Amino acid sequence: MNPTNEQAQGLYRLCYRLTNAIYPQWQYRNIELVRIDERTGNLYVLAGELDFEIKPSGGDEP
């Protein structure tokens, strides 16, 4: 299963935010895991103690 174009763009935006490129006052987060959940079609991102799901529409939720 492949991510949608919207998911790929959402993943890019999320990774950009997490790696401290936009908000210098935020603490840098290592991105440890990116995986697609084949049951739901959501992308799962683990970054330190935070986790996110990126829906097929491209929206992310902590």
Rank of each mutant, 00 (worst) to 15 (best):
M1P: 03
N2I: 10
E6Y: 07
E6Q: 12
Q7C: 04
A8D: 04
A8S: 09
A8M: 07
Q9E: 14
G10T: 02
G10R: 01
L11V: 06
Y12A: 14
Y12L: 12
R13Q: 12
R13W: 11
R13S: 11
L14K: 02
Y16K: 13
R17T: 05
R17A: 07
L18G: 01
T19H: 08
T19I: 06
T19L: 12
N20H: 14
N20W: 12
N20K: 15
N20T: 09
A21T: 10
A21H: 14
I22M: 15
I22F: 15
Y23D: 11
Y23N: 12
P24N: 04
P24I: 04
Q25K: 15
Q25W: 15
Q25V: 14
W26G: 11
W26D: 15
W26V: 11
Q27D: 09
Y28V: 10
R29S: 07
R29G: 03
N30Q: 13
I31S: 02
E32G: 07
L33R: 09
R35C: 11
R35Y: 11
R35M: 12
I36L: 09
I36C: 03
D37H: 09
D37E: 13
D37C: 12
D37I: 03
D37M: 04
D37F: 08
E38Y: 08
E38A: 07
R39K: 14
R39Y: 06
N42F: 07
N42V: 02
N42L: 04
N42K: 09
Y44C: 06
L46R: 05
A47D: 00
A47R: 01
G48A: 04
G48I: 03
G48K: 04
E49D: 08
E49V: 07
E49T: 08
L50P: 00
L50A: 11
D51H: 14
F52S: 02
I54V: 02
I54M: 03
K55L: 12
K55C: 06
P56H: 06
P56D: 04
S57P: 00
G59H: 11
E61C: 07
E61A: 10
E61K: 09
E61D: 13
P62H: 12
